[in-house]
């Protein structure tokens, strides 16, 4: 474990808590893409299958349980509890166009052709594009509540910090995983446009308005 990966995991944890609090406190999931949250639930389910077979550390196990539980809780809040506030009209990204390519790519490019490894690889590829429905929704509505933009900033930062972790691990342990690194770079790049808007607008107290 290193400081980059620890702060990355904490940023990830913070993002999930911000989102859960926003939905629970406002009793509304307006502006939140349910489709992205479904993709995240798929990502954690396919990535953490080794939860019961492999013990890495208490930290590792606890975080996996939290990510799994919170992602399903978020999907439940959006599609069941606060269904009336779910914005169907703006959450229209076709997630099958993200899932299928991730499946195909995972079958073609992986470290080992075993079920667990293929599913892990699929989850890595899917996570890199899982935020697209949310970013698409923000662009369609043309704006985002500031709490949603804080969520996106924390979520985008987590994989950015992981990139620093991978550089650190390559330098210190000469350990690297190209699949995770390439997907992590793609994932972080997708947030760049949003990061620019967040830093130039939201941090100045303005509302996040995308150019129409």
């Amino acid at each position: 474990m290193n400081i980059f990966r620890l702060t990355g995991d904490l940023a990830h944890l913070l993002a999930i808590i911000i989102l859960l609090l926003k939905i629970w406190k406002t009793r509304s999931c307006a502006g939140i893409s349910g489709k992205s949250q479904i993709l995240f639930a798929i990502v954690y389910t396919t990535r953490y299958l080794d939860l019961v077979t492999t013990y890495v550390s208490a930290y590792n196990t606890l975080m996996k349980i939290f990510f799994l539980g919170s992602s399903f809780a978020t999907v439940y809040l959006i599609y069941v509890k606060f269904k009336a506030t779910y914005d169907h009209n703006h959450d229209t990204f076709r997630i099958e166009f993200l899932i299928l390519p991730a499946v195909i790519l995972a079958l073609l490019i992986n470290h080992a052709f075993t079920p667990l490894e293929i599913l892990w690889t699929f989850s890595i590829y899917l996570e890199s594009v899982a935020i697209l429905p949310q970013l698409f929704m923000v662009s369609k509505t043309g704006e985002a509540e500031s709490i949603t933009s804080h969520y996106l900033f924390a979520l985008g930062s987590y994989r950015g910090l992981y990139i620093l972790n991978w550089i650190y691990r390559y330098a210190m342990e000469s350990h690297y995983d190209l699949i995770a690194i390439v997907a992590g770079i793609v994932q972080t790049v997708l947030y760049c446009d949003f990061f620019y808007l967040y830093i130039t607008k939201v941090l100045k107290g303005k509302k996040l308005q995308l150019p129409a």
Partner: peptide, 10 residues
Amino acid sequence: KGARRKKDEL
């Protein structure tokens, strides 16, 4: 390569 090692990252 790295992938052979136990996956210790989230």
